[in-house]
Design a protein around this nucleic acid. Structure first.
Lengths: 371, 371
DNA sequence: TTGTAGGCGTTATCAC
DNA sequence: GTGATAACGCCTACAA
């Protein structure tokens, strides 16, 4: 039944016995508190060393009421942005004396709820959550978070309307406005956007009810940017594609770009969507920078390496992760939650943005190649 | 001093009291074992629900002797390969009832040692480690692993000569041989390789003493592949570049490729090195697929999207992560460690491999452009 | 069917 | 300066 026989683990009792002192003294010697004769202390420590004593973190955590562990719940660790965020969180946490329990929800609220509950049971000292974009009044989620209301919580990358708790995001609204301005300043008036999200299936021009706050900000900022230049979004030029289905984003790009009457510039929601656009441009034999200008959110490693290099909104990932941990640890220390923390993005202008060649896209032009 | 006053947490004692039963009965009701009157059970459960009772995982773990948590120690979470591996590990672990503590070592053995020790203190039920390529007889590491010898351990992606424990890797040696064969079959005889690692500084043609087993296999396989075709590695065509320093890989590529007498084909150790080669080719105005053929390890998302698409050795990341967890959980269940598990890579031939244009690289050719 | 009681390993308070 | 003892929250053998 129980094949899991392990080697015996050395406890503080064993150390005490071997050093011929009481548990209390052994504990004092090891933890270095209280009054203790130096000779005794050293002897106990030597014995502990020799026996290979390792304190039991569980017992210690139970006794202390803190586990020195925080929980990180992200929507997709494999996404480069979250992978980097995770790295920053782990490294800052380690620096501050915490370990990190990590869970991947695949953008699923049920999984998020489960993770939050389980982590709370494991008595993490605090939680950093990238909330899955659920219905804003999801009862399960509310219940989950209410249950762990005593656990410090910091939202990362996205906010949720119904949670008035600390959050760390970046100013995606403003960056989207700026991205549009950049395109407009090069003479573009025919500007589209493709969003990749987990709510749609295939692609559609109808805005999903459920969007992460970062995505929503980018889309709203895009619209606002157009408005400020006296432009407006054409219905077919604002497309929402499924990030779940491998080719949905390419299909969206293809549908938009193979029209005779197509946009001369595009904003994409993240680097994966940009990659899809690049792929489709190859297929349609559109040259990026001349036939189509492109600005993407998320400065992935490849954007600067391909020809032409892609202009991108670089987000301060590492700082965001670090800020989240510092805020969390402050809360663990008893400080009340900060107001939302918003860091600045950096719009890097590369050669994927050029002057529009209007002739190519007029109805009488000779483009419109099928894939 | 102690600002960390939290809301009181409901324990099983509170539930018992509120339901007017003993702790034992409450426990039975909640865990659903032993003989208990259904009415009592339901009443206790209702009370627990109402009070928002959540079991204390620490206490449970201490009592049970298992924490339902595994530790994952990787060298760099931000690296796409390990990010995907982490995702697979987390998802498989979750499926099997475990949570994952994660640590990032940045390829540093000291950090690895610390993580292993701390995770052992937190009483993880098992460890999955991507070992940092340390000196094979590092005493600190040996001591660390000896101390946690009672904890099931699975090495991921790399083996260590001095550890005879379970491991999950992929057949990189064979794939390197295959990659060379592919190039040779297209007529290449002038073949180089660039390795990116954490031991070198700048770049060098001297093989570092310290290499991860995966990297070592790729390099050895490269040499073997040449040998099998009656070729041999030219000293200046097998370069080791620092992955720590941002431009070391580009410098290595530039040095190799701007020679008059340069290779017509290149194998790269991972997708980051490949990206550097692509960048350098742009600078030197070498066309990939015609002026230079390229095969890389690790099939990153962008390899198929750029022109020409890059041939790559795709590694079965997800399966590797899953296999590691399954092996670990089996060991936790008491099964002895398996012999090394080696999964198969998949060499995807794309258009970055072409026929060599020998004229361009002969001493009398008119190439050799400076950056 | 239910209650009593002991112990998991640690730390800290209180006596001696 | 040191030792006995209680407590953290849970589970379960045993007694009733």
């Amino acid at each position: 039944m129980d094949g899991s026989r392990r080697l015996p683990v050395v406890t503080i009792v064993d150390v005490a016995r071997a050093a011929d002192v009481s548990r209390a003294t052994a504990s004092r010697a090891l933890a270095g508190y209280g009054r203790i004769r130096p000779a005794t202390r050293d002897r106990v420590r030597a014995v502990a060393e020799e026996l290979g004593y390792r304190p039991n973190g569980l017992a210690r955590a139970m006794r202390a009421g803190r586990s020195a562990t925080i929980g990180l719940v992200v929507t997709d660790i494999a996404n480069p942005f979250f992978a980097q965020a995770t790295k920053a969180v782990a490294s800052t946490a380690s620096e501050l004396g915490y370990d990190v329990l990590v869970a991947d929800t695949n953008e699923d609220e049920k999984a998020e709820r489960r993770a939050v509950l389980v982590f709370a049971e494991k008595r993490v000292d605090g939680l950093i959550v990238v909330p899955a974009p659920g219905s804003p009044h999801d009862q399960l989620l509310d219940a989950a978070y209410a249950q762990v209301a005593s656990t410090p919580l910091v939202l990362l990358d996205r906010r949720r309307a119904d949670h008035h708790c600390a959050s760390v995001t970046s100013d995606d609204f403003r960056s989207a406005v700026d991205a549009v301005s950049l395109l407009v300043s090069h003479g573009h008036t025919r500007i589209g956007m493709i969003d990749g999200n987990w709510a749609s299936s295939g692609f559609t021009s109808r805005r999903p009810r459920i969007l992460g706050s970062a995505a929503a900000e980018r889309i709203d900022g895009f619209r606002e940017g157009l408005k400020r230049s006296g432009l407006s979004a054409r219905p077919g030029w604002m497309l929402y594609a499924s990030a779940r289905e491998p080719y949905a984003t390419q299909a969206a790009a293809a549908s938009m770009l193979s029209e005779r009457d197509r946009p001369t510039a595009l904003v994409t929601n993240n680097s994966d969507v940009a990659l899809a656009v690049v792929t489709v441009c190859h297929k349609l034999e559109l040259e990026i920078g001349s036939d189509l200008s492109l600005v993407t959110f998320d400065d992935a490693s490849w954007t600067a390496a391909i020809r032409p290099p892609i202009s991108a909104v670089a987000r301060p990932v590492a700082q965001m992760g670090e800020a989240a941990v510092r805020e969390l640890v402050a809360q663990i220390g008893g400080r009340p939650p900060s107001p939302p923390i918003v860091l600045s993005n950096n719009l890097i202008d590369r050669r994927s943005v050029g002057v529009p060649d209007e002739r190519r896209v007029q109805p009488h032009g000779e483009d419109s190649l099928l894939s």
